[in-house]
Design a protein around this nucleic acid. Sequence first.
DNA 1: TTGATTGCAAATGCTTTGCAGCCGC
DNA 2: GCGGCTGCAAAGCATTTGCAATCAA
Lengths: 146, 146
Amino acid sequence: VPDTTPATDLDGVLRAHGHRVTRQRRLVWEALRGSDRHLTVDELAADLSNDVDIASIYRTLGLFEELGVARVSRFHDDGASRWESAHPDEHFHLVCTRCGEVDHHVGSLVANIRSHLEEGHGFEVADVDLAVRGTCARCRAGSDEA
Amino acid sequence: VPDTTPATDLDGVLRAHGHRVTRQRRLVWEALRGSDRHLTVDELAADLSNDVDIASIYRTLGLFEELGVARVSRFHDDGASRWESAHPDEHFHLVCTRCGEVDHHVGSLVANIRSHLEEGHGFEVADVDLAVRGTCARCRAGSDEA
DNA sequence: TTGATTGCAAATGCTTTGCAGCCGC
DNA sequence: GCGGCTGCAAAGCATTTGCAATCAA
């Protein structure tokens, strides 16, 4: 299910902030958008192995995050960050500890959290990062993927 | 505000699972419980510098997590894990990106998330990890801590 | 042309691991 | 005494950084 995100005009965003449009940035962007999964830097590097150096991938992802077009999470305990292109709908992550799958769950929940905190506690919410670990329906049904 | 957590019988928990009670495990446990903050391993190591080797701190924390008496989070983007003794009330973390403080927010929200997912989606929830980044009320009031 | 950006390689920092000696049981 | 634990030092990995060459504007 590639091309999850509505077409973001990467070139425009870059130029609007005074950054240059480079082949590498376009490639990283396409790799991010072309996947429906959360990608580790290693996975991105594998995709782009001969085209973009891993150091540039890191720098590019950092820039994308700054520009608000990409998002990181660290919900796996293997120490590796996972990236996705920024999604317009706020969502949270369902992490299955059995099969490793990470699903998005879109709903009003994140908005509820925001307003709850803004109104009740004077906390100005910038970013809600909600990860739920557990066992997904598929894994619960079939005992495992033996 | 030390001693946040109700007295957990560490010795009992360890023995119940066939682990040995050692001086180091007691010391790490006291250091964890004696702080109201989330501690990095470095901070723990500083507290216990001449008493417990850092490798043993890592191993001990891993064991504590397995036993359910300690909890890790990685909501700071500095790559360092932060530990706290397991709290009986489910809560989520308010991370102020201005002053770095991490507050707990206890409420029904986590329970809501649980039931929402269990009932609606067949997802068996093991662990809810909710981090909200933003600016705390104190930092919003006084411009900064200059 | 010019300075932002890249590639390469070295370095950093957190965390893990192998192993000999130690200590709880 | 036995086997689990610890300390020490040496890896392991993900990520960052210095620097000369490259390329977008």
